[in-house]
Write a protein that binds this DNA or RNA. Sequence first.
DNA 1: AATGTTTCCGCAAACGTTTGCGGACAGAAG
DNA 2: CTTCTGTCCGCAAACGTTTGCGGAAACATT
Lengths: 332, 332
Amino acid sequence: MRHSPTLKKIAERLSVSISTVSRALKNHPDISPETGRKVKELAELLEYDPNPYAVNLRTHSSKEFAVVVPSLSNFFYHSFISSIEEEARNYGYSVIIYRSSNDPKIEQEILKSCRHKRVSGIFIAITSETNDIESFLKMDVHGIPVIFFDKVPQYESCNKICVGDEHAAFLAAKEIIKKDIPNVLGIFGDRNMSITKARLEKFKAVLQQDGQSINLKTVHARSSAEAEQITLSLLPEWIGKKFAVFCMSDEILAGSMKAIQRKGLSAPVDLGVIAISDGMIPLLFYPEITYAETSGSKLGTLAFKRMMRCIAGSSFAQTIIDESKLVAGGSI
Amino acid sequence: MRHSPTLKKIAERLSVSISTVSRALKNHPDISPETGRKVKELAELLEYDPNPYAVNLRTHSSKEFAVVVPSLSNFFYHSFISSIEEEARNYGYSVIIYRSSNDPKIEQEILKSCRHKRVSGIFIAITSETNDIESFLKMDVHGIPVIFFDKVPQYESCNKICVGDEHAAFLAAKEIIKKDIPNVLGIFGDRNMSITKARLEKFKAVLQQDGQSINLKTVHARSSAEAEQITLSLLPEWIGKKFAVFCMSDEILAGSMKAIQRKGLSAPVDLGVIAISDGMIPLLFYPEITYAETSGSKLGTLAFKRMMRCIAGSSFAQTIIDESKLVAGGSI
DNA sequence: AATGTTTCCGCAAACGTTTGCGGACAGAAG
DNA sequence: CTTCTGTCCGCAAACGTTTGCGGAAACATT
């Protein structure tokens, strides 16, 4: 159980005071170049690194961000986290990742832990059952900025970074119109989710406005399995017609694709397939599925910029919405 | 920027000393029941929580574990982390997740950060390019136990928890023999990875021993895309024969399935498909792919148990290998 | 009454940093 | 020779805990 080098040890070996060492290490103007050099050399040699606990105790600032997500098995969050990490590294911050398991109670515990640790900031995708927005707002009182992303609360006066649900739905609908497909089966998620509403409404609106003659049927599924069942039961009535299936999310897409394979159909000849996706699942099939991308990494850089603003003192809340882009596979 | 309650504040309001409060809060026998009650009541009221930085500075112990993985977009790691978290919670530990991005340099930085934070223990799946095992062993000097899992170093004298590569390969091979399939295309990963060697050798051995008449061809792919290419180029010569494709991992499976779909083939009629997998990808297809499961959650509980032993003082290194189980889809 | 034993509590040091303040010394200006 | 302005550095307090030690009071024993 060896001991890490401390300011004290360096000071003793150099016969200077602790404060001198401390200052030398951060290039304080009070320190002569000569002393500065010597200190930094020894520190390098000894592999000195400040004890973060002591620093925090003293300064009340931990150079670390927390990212809180409901689940890790999600390509979108993964790419979001990646970009946050990369940016953070450049600014000398580290990031720790928390997983709420979509449980508001665990989410609260994590929040408490963040408070005690005095993290410099929190990026959070809230639980689908989170309704106590109160505790998040309280973080501000403690001087900890909170940036919501992806799954954000309804409450207006907070910082939110969201994917452009409307825009993604718009792109998908436009693509369908462009391909001149007369019949569309739209499979959406849980009716209660705001994300579902946004995507559904826009999708419907575009199709009705720009493609008047298009026949659209929409259904809702709350899970991958349910999406599979629904698709399976609906598919027979469409076979033979020229039609496309639109899947609102990766989860839905996974289920629907299973049904489509099961029926022995294959895109783009028997039907068209198009989705809104984070970009992982569509690549697993041949042809790859055409999708409107909700980019986690782009959202990440946007969120990070906003965070840095908050830390710099900008207190006014803002909602940023990221645009989507269409990635053409060969499925439609 | 409000202030958290401290021992001092409680002490002042109760006109006792700080030490009395500290001891009362942890039921020290020196404290009278009367005083203890009062202190605990006020602490509850004020929502007191010890400042973890001060505690650590004093005691040199943080009740938190670190889990380090190359990537988060991996169902196996995901389930591993879940089970570690669940166990940890029961013991009053929290866990922080680090992501090395499969970069040994970042891995080193993470390790350093863990050292400074004096985490109570580290669970790590090393980078595929990690060869400097030295720094991991040094953690022991600092009193931080390290448990390797999944991707483990060759070095013997350390704690390793691995999936049963041999056993999984064995199960897959046995299944092929049982189904009486005469021709097998085995697609494996990078030749240099120990995991590849273990799976390849066992797979080959079982097939040769128990299924003498089986014709086995093995190839190697270093990525999903490469697996797709190889499969694509090889498939024509097998069509018509009764054969099966064995994929060593999820990554390979993803690539191969794309090629198979591209050729318009479908399991189990045109060919058989079987894999070693963490259980996510196989469920995306219809029929679901039959696979030998490498269970992250089981590995997690095993790793955690080992960790608790280490913390309790057991210093002797041990390698634990988890057995696999066959999950039948309908692909073979 | 003197001594021993409990019970309960406070003092103070320590963990490793940061930082305001003041002091020693040098050279410059008068 | 005094005074002044820098330059460079050290003292000491503070952050919030934990814990060994010692001490006061109360009570029990000779």
